[in-house]
Amino acid sequence: MSNELPTVALARLVEGARYEVMPTPTIVDKVRTHVPASVPITVTAAPGKGLEATLWTSVELAGAGYTVVPHLAARMVSGRAELAEVVARLAEAGVTQVFVPGGDADPPAGDYTSALDLLRDLDTLEHPFTHVGITGYPESHPSIDDDVTVQSMWDKRTYATHIVSNMTFDAEGLGTWCERVRRRGVGLPLLVGVPGPVDRAKLLGMAGKIGVGESLRFLRKQKSVFARIAAPGFSTDKFVSRVGALSANPALRIEGLHVFTFNQVEAMEAWRARMLDEARTARVRPVG
């Protein structure tokens, strides 16, 4: 990727953005109603729901013509035998991309205590996955030191095709983190995790729909997220525009957006269409 104008880079990122959804009972219908099949959909894995909800949602969306990226949370998979079954099921559905986080299941379901454990076994299995994502943390992990997370990306780099960052709000910090990762020798392209322009009341309601225990875990984990999304002056538009400007620097290898929708997919798609139109208009706007 050569140097780009910021508006060109922004249009490229917004056009290719992918959406993260939670596997609730209604999400398949919502996606099919409001999101074009050209938008990739990633499906989270929550310990309270089990991996089956993720797999079922992914298979249904793949059958509807979407490019689907299920989250295979390592700590939710019991071991190699279950992993092989999951791979076979996804292969049959035509799924060619996965995202492999460590996950929050405590205790773990079986043999895998980290993403690296599962990635090593996946590498020895025949599988259809042309894209395998791993996690990155420009916003510090709540329980793992930054040096450890950067080292982890180095350890996993040979098993992956790209990095997907957790949700981030600080463009300057993102740029600094990217430079640090590149200096460490991790050259995988990066998809930046950004918060969608979600309605705050609906966001709280979404937390309530994913199960009582899971909701409490979600709220504890994401309390800073709620505060920062609601903070005066924060704008998804402005932040994504800054990420677009960063991505114009080819050395950072920022190649996409991973948008956290919190299942507000109708509003999300309207936002993407508007941002794309504005970016394209800025590219052709007369000077003077």
Rank of each mutant, 00 (worst) to 15 (best):
E92R: 13
K209P: 00
P195L: 12
W177K: 10
T281S: 14
A201L: 07
G288H: 13
R272Q: 12
P128M: 10
H34D: 14
L55N: 10
E255H: 13
R18M: 15
I254R: 03
A73R: 01
P128N: 11
H71P: 03
D29Q: 14
S58P: 12
V68I: 08
L10P: 07
T261E: 06
F169N: 11
P108C: 01
I163Y: 01
A251S: 00
A227G: 14
G102D: 00
R157T: 12
L51H: 00
L216M: 09
V39N: 02
L188F: 12
R242S: 14
R12V: 09
W56S: 06
W154N: 04
R183L: 14
L122I: 11
P25M: 02
R32E: 13
D170C: 11
P250D: 02
L13A: 12
D29A: 15
A279T: 12
T44D: 01
P250Q: 04
Y66K: 01
L55K: 11
A109R: 03
L90G: 05
A207G: 02
G63E: 06
E15N: 14
R18H: 15
R280K: 11
H258K: 03
G65N: 00
S58Q: 12
D147F: 08
T135N: 02
A74F: 06
P138N: 03
H258F: 12
P197W: 09
A207S: 02
S140N: 09
L72S: 00
A105K: 05
R32K: 14
V198N: 07
M167E: 04
G175Q: 04
R285M: 15
R242N: 13
V198E: 09
L90Y: 07
T161D: 01
T26S: 13
L61A: 03
Y66T: 01
G196Y: 11
T57R: 00
D199E: 14
P108R: 01
Y66I: 02
R180K: 14
T33I: 06
N249R: 01
I41H: 02
A9F: 08
V59A: 06
A37R: 04
I229D: 06
L219T: 14
R217M: 03
V14T: 15
R12G: 10
A74Y: 04
V287P: 04
R32A: 15
